[in-house]
Design a protein around this nucleic acid. Structure first.
Lengths: 344, 344
DNA sequence: GTGAAAGCGCTAACAC
DNA sequence: GTGTTAGCGCTTTCAC
């Protein structure tokens, strides 16, 4: 078997209690003793069994990270940020990738995460009430990104402000018919981004004295393909918009695709603004609202660590700012308006 | 505290051994007894403590997954494939995201993964000999994707064939000056993809009777930006290539960017072929060599599970085929050759 | 400052 | 088919 704490104790000529204390850096160990233990441990290439430690201490030193899809840009970014701070703090990261709907159901049904983590980080954005209850039933600190859940710590961006900035930019360029491609505002999913970005869109219109036209608002589901379909719908309108704000870059990519298919050029014929500043946004020259995703992962991880150490500090909901990145996909409306008439 | 196996035993009127056997589905339990145990467990909402089980059984039922960057498309895809089969098989997935070079060094130095997993899946492609030794020292089954390591199970694609197919396609279109943008062939990293894709490139040229011109081969490092820089170098040649094969889509994206910056159109002025079939390849209309990444993750995970159950089946190195996907970024060379002269 | 000993909550022999 | 019991390898009191 692997070398155990007893082997180290024997070699260092001390008791296993002293070995435990020394190696964990606890006080009340004479410097010389500690040194002898370190040497013995090194010589034996000793590593404490984490599972034995967990059993004895009651702590798991592990955090569960639940994501819908590791493959989606946003989640991968968030995980990497969270992983860094958790790992640094000595925590193990148990990954639960939900995948499809069936996987999601299975997870919340069986809760395989129970009893194996000290806290949970749920990046699974649209959370139903039942799912939230399942997490709550674990009785460990929990945190989310991009949503606000009572009792959970959370980190999110200023979605309203971001949406407003994007649309204000389009309006400043002279656009008056600005389309919106929103994510699905499923309720009660506690996923507030779609609704808030839309609020930002409307607020910007109102501030500019431009009437809100429901015909210009189309729903997608945050995938590229849904963006393409939505844009096709907008292009089919009698009076298509001269600019579009997509609530995510991936949907904006779909918009770009629809434009190309229609023989239109982004930034000239139709302006397009996205949201996220996806890695590919720069390549595609997409104007977008940048949000620092790895940083959100870091922040939420730190919030979790805080919840773990201190005595019940009420979970905070942090909001961090976004930044408009103007690129080539937005420009003034085409000189000869596609149709001279205005709705009103 | 949480409800323990004793609570269940008491409630079901049996011993803890019977509870253990019943819940784990072991034989030699009377159906009625098992049922009573199940009911009691359900009523108490009992979940066995995984860590106690690990201590007692010696198995960890966990696998460590080591990746350089979760955020890179390839790794995220591979993880999702592997996660699915591991989770289904009841394994926990411990994620180790190396991040930067420092993180990598720290990991292989401290090996925080020791004693906590039954096997390791290393997606960390370019592996040094020292790193491989660190993994070996764990004395658990290990597997890799995209490389071949003695003693480790592995899954990879036919890189030579893929590269050859891409370049053959370009040659068939009539191109005679075909550039190569390769990944860095760092040795001894055991990461064979760059070299093999290059071999495919050269093989295709030779088969077509086109001489290999070292001036047309430039190195990148698999990032988009390195692809952009490499393409700029190729465009600066006296006789720039009319077609380019990039060893990864991300580098090909950089190529597309360089072309646009130079006022050139992909597929008309210069043909571009990539490798991977990245999510964005379709949007960017990039001809590429598709490789099934999640499937590779699944396969390698299954190989690991096999290594875990059966008695030492010698680790296999599997190779799976690729598929050429022709899109708009490749076409015949421009009719009036940029420069009429030919090298030879 | 250090050691002895009692668990932590299971699994796995072994006995019945 | 079921129960008893001895660990698994630590942490944590509590003495000294």
């Amino acid at each position: 078997m692997a070398t155990s704490i007893e082997d180290v104790a024997r070699r260092a000529g001390v008791s296993i209690a002293t070995v435990s204390r020394s190696l964990r850096g606890l006080p009340d160990v004479a410097p010389g003793t500690r040194e002898r233990v370190f040497v013995a441990a090194r010589e034996l290439d000793y590593v404490a069994s984490p599972y034995a430690a967990r059993l004895a201490s009651g702590r798991t030193d592990a955090v569960g990270v639940v994501v819908p899809h590791v493959t989606r840009w946003f989640f991968a970014q968030a995980i990497s940020g969270a992983e860094r701070v958790l790992r640094e703090a000595g925590y193990d990261l148990l990954l639960y990738n939900l995948g499809n709907g069936a996987g999601r159901e299975r997870f919340f049904d069986r809760m395989p995460i129970r009893r194996r983590v000290d806290c949970v980080l749920v990046l699974c954005l649209p959370l139903t009430d039942a799912e939230i209850d399942s997490i709550r039933a674990m009785h460990v600190p929990a945190a989310v990104i991009g949503a606000t859940v009572p009792g959970f710590a959370s980190v999110r961006i200023d979605d309203v402000g971001g949406g407003e900035a994007a649309v204000a930019h389009l309006l400043e360029l002279g656009h008056r018919r600005v389309g919106l491609i929103s994510g699905a505002p499923d309720e009660p999913m506690h996923f507030t981004a779609p609704g808030e970005r839309r609020r930002g869109y409307r607020q910007a219109l109102r501030s500019a004295g431009v009437p809100v036209d429901p015909a210009l608002e189309v729903s997608g589901d945050f995938t590229m393909d849904s963006g393409r379909v939505a844009m096709e719908r907008l292009l089919a309108l009698d009076e298509p918009p001269t600019a579009v704000f997509a609530e995510s870059d991936e949907m904006a990519f779909g918009v770009l695709r629809a434009l190309r298919a229609a023989g239109l050029t982004a930034g000239r014929d139709v302006s397009v603004a996205g949201f996220d500043d996806h890695d590919m946004a720069e390549l595609l020259d997409l104007t977008t609202v940048a949000q620092p995703v790895p940083e959100q992962g870091e922040l939420v991880a730190r919030a979790l660590l805080t919840a773990l150490t201190r005595k019940a500090p009420p979970p905070r909901a942090e909001t961090i700012p976004t930044r408009l990145v103007v690129r080539g996909s937005t420009g003034p409306p085409p000189a000869p308006a596609p149709r001279p008439g205005r709705t009103r």
